[in-house]
Design a protein around this nucleic acid. Structure first.
Lengths: 112, 112
DNA sequence: ATGATGTTTAGCTAAACGTCGAAATGAAGT
DNA sequence: ACTTCATTTCGACGTTTAGCTAAACATCAT
């Protein structure tokens, strides 16, 4: 969870996630939106990958990045949910309408 | 909003907020929960103040810190809400219930 | 093989961060 | 006024982070 907040603490990375909200995009396509070098973008991608916030799928000669909404929701709603009942109500836990993926709830890293 | 995510990117500060969730506490009382020096804690408090996540009230020779739940909710739910409808449902927005609050939070653009 | 698309490494600068001890501030209490 | 307690401010230090260029590397398409 620490990794998620760390990843979210940078405006560029948050913006990447917002771009990914609409549709999956390739690394180059994403990089075109920012005035930084490709190595720099690549490290940003790596941080997002390590936080498990995006999924990188290599397709041909491009890499497609895809937002992992459930992880974002889990971390942020989970955190706010510990504070407010309002937010707790927004964390469906086992609501089928949430997302169609097999949510890797507690699958991953201990978040350092 | 950047300040909020920046403040949240540190585990110590997140832990401070969690302690404040239960009850307001003085600076020293909070500091006793962490194995760092008081000056260090003081800077953490300053970051939280700048992010508007806590309220500092000076009472006598102590300072009482108080969680500003609405700001936390607004930032985090607002951000997640831009991604998921589920989270959006948890954000009561500017309903009549929150009119008493004088915070003009201009909910809109999360664009960094 | 060549070219395009990322990623990685190396080496660097500059800024930000967390941390500290020591000093300064502010409010009581004596 | 002086002391004491609580907290913040002030340098200083080492680490981390974001950024760059340049080059190397892997993979795939043509």
């Amino acid at each position: 969870m620490n990794a998620v907040f760390k990843a979210l603490s940078d405006p560029t990375r948050r913006h990447v996630l917002e771009l990914l909200r609409d549709r999956p995009m390739t690394a180059g396509e994403l990089a075109d939106h920012f005035p930084v070098s490709k190595p720099t973008m690549s490290t940003h991608f790596a941080v997002l990958r390590e936080a498990n916030l995006v999924d990188a799928q290599k397709l041909g000669k491009t890499v497609i990045y895809r937002l992992k909404l459930s992880v974002l929701e889990d971390a942020l709603l989970g955190f706010v949910g510990a504070f407010s009942a309002v937010a707790q109500a927004a964390k469906p836990a086992d609501d089928a309408a949430s997302v169609a993926n097999s949510a890797p709830k507690s699958a991953g890293r201990p978040t350092s």
